[in-house]
Design a binder for these strands. Structure first.
Length: 221
DNA sequence: AACCAGGACGTGA
DNA sequence: TCACGTCATGGT
């Protein structure tokens, strides 16, 4: 078994299924779930949920998820959490709605750009390069959208992933595409696997790398 | 009360 | 290509 698989196995045993990506609707149905849906890969179930995930992907750039949730709730309560509707909101108002997520000047513009793109999609699955062409969507955001909203087997690499790889000495390069390739070459192209793996890395990193502290290598990995 | 969080962009070397 | 400054709120 290769390293990518064995690490996944250990992380899964340690933390269990994560059930990403969180959705507002699920959090309210069961606050205890915090929006996650472990074991159920049937999400998103509709266009609105797809759009919500994409907005979350943009809003969470370098931002704590809790702040993103507040912004998403504001959007939904203002009936602006669907592409068509979001485009009707005036820019100053949009800034106010997403304020808790920070960077509201940039992100408000990013959301508009993306909403226009999303509306035009009309059920079609966007290509990675198309997404990267939009202002405000870099490699991680594009892969997050593709993996969690459009269910395409794209491995998501974030700062935590690079940090873990570097700490465990898995790969020399920390360039996005190199790290992404490292995992994609070793794993079967399965969406649930990619989804869980990224979420597990985040969970692992939150427990080991926070507060300026890098814990010693977890030997169980 | 600094420091950080599920990054991306613009700029200058 | 690549390092670096910038963007902003809320929690610790």
């Amino acid at each position: 078994m290769n390293k990518a698989r064995s690490i996944y196995k250990m992380l899964l045993k340690k933390y269990g299924y994560q059930g990403w990506w969180p959705l507002l609707e699920l959090e309210e149905k069961d606050p205890n779930s915090r929006g996650y849906h472990p074991g159920d890969y049937g999400y998103p179930k509709n266009d609105a949920q797809r759009f919500e995930i994409c907005c979350g992907a943009i809003l969470t750039q370098n931002t704590a998820w809790k702040n993103v949730e507040a912004a998403l709730r504001n959007l939904r309560d203002a009936k602006a959490l669907q592409a068509e509707q979001l485009l009707r909101v005036r820019l100053p108002q949009l800034r106010v709605l997403i304020r808790p997520a920070g960077y509201f000047n940039q992100k408000s513009a990013y959301l508009r750009t993306f909403a226009a793109f999303f509306r035009k999609l009309d059920e079609r699955i966007p290509g990675r390069d198309e997404l990267l062409g939009l202002k405000g969507i870099g490699p991680e955001t594009a892969d997050s959208m593709l993996l969690y909203a459009f269910k395409q087997p794209k491995f998501v690499v974030d700062a935590y992933t690079k940090r873990m790889c570097s700490q465990l000495g898995l790969i020399e390069s920390s360039k996005y595409d190199d790290v992404k390739g490292f995992f994609e070459r070793q794993l079967p192209r399965e969406v649930p696997l990619y989804q869980e793996y990224h979420a597990l890395i985040v969970e692992y990193a939150k427990r080991n790398y926070t507060k300026k502290i890098t814990c010693p290598i977890d030997e169980s990995l």
